[in-house]
Design a protein around this nucleic acid. Sequence first.
DNA 1: CCTTGATATTTAGGCAGCCTAACTGTTAGG
DNA 2: CCTAACAGTTAGGCTGCCTAAATATCAAGG
Lengths: 148, 148
Amino acid sequence: MNTNQADDALLALAQSFREALRQSVYVMRRLDSEEQLSSAQLGVLKMALDGGARVGGIARNLGVKVPSATEQIIKLERAGLVKREADPDDSRAVRVAATAAGRAAVENADRRRNEFIAGILGTLSQAERDAVEAALPVFDKINHSVQN
Amino acid sequence: MNTNQADDALLALAQSFREALRQSVYVMRRLDSEEQLSSAQLGVLKMALDGGARVGGIARNLGVKVPSATEQIIKLERAGLVKREADPDDSRAVRVAATAAGRAAVENADRRRNEFIAGILGTLSQAERDAVEAALPVFDKINHSVQN
DNA sequence: CCTTGATATTTAGGCAGCCTAACTGTTAGG
DNA sequence: CCTAACAGTTAGGCTGCCTAAATATCAAGG
């Protein structure tokens, strides 16, 4: 019976959590709709900032399959934001590197998105912001456990 | 200068928040991939539970345009989970109502999804769960401000 | 060497969900 | 009445994801 109560509380929390997830998708869509660079592209581009990202690594890191990563990389390449070059050590592999324009695009997109979110966070009370801040690492943890 | 510091803190929080948003999309995808009913369809179906939902209202509630709602309604209708009937008061409008099968499908899908999430939440410490619980209403508030 | 299985990426084809524009039918105000 | 506003559907198009199959390279054994 104690167990059932605990389970019920957990299920209720899960329900609220799901509602927040649904809202997050909405917020992400909104964020994307105001920008030139989609979040899928921004994710790939960020990974190419250091210069030596491989397609498989990018895909794994973003939680998508390799062809989906390739697709975004091709778009970014056409936009002149990354370049693809053969890996000197393994000719099967491809190194994806951001161009100068790519680097600038990331900074710009990141700044604009952060400002949008910061604008919303700025309307909250300090206590509310603290609550968000405290929960973020937990969300991180949850995500990792979902990834398996 | 004090203002700048505050802004910097806000921007840093915004950055972390965006990371959590990105992860949420991932979790949602994962949740969807394990079920028959997509979350888009589940959202529509839930709104049809009371019996008298209109297409425009459903769309507004889900944050999508009317044709997107129609699309999901048609799929649900084909699956026998909702029925569409003329609104007696306004022949332009359509009333979308869940069938018995639809009601059962919602309960099933909701339970399974909640259990999946509860399974993850169950691995957290009480303090972590508390942090999540405290942040959820704030996320709710943030969403509403995004909707404008 | 040479073959063979594993690995890295791309290509092809397909699906879901969202959007805008255009069309149909209904309502309500002047 | 007639016309503007409104409710919904249809048509067409886009993005982002997926699986399966093709291509190329690598690494290990015989």
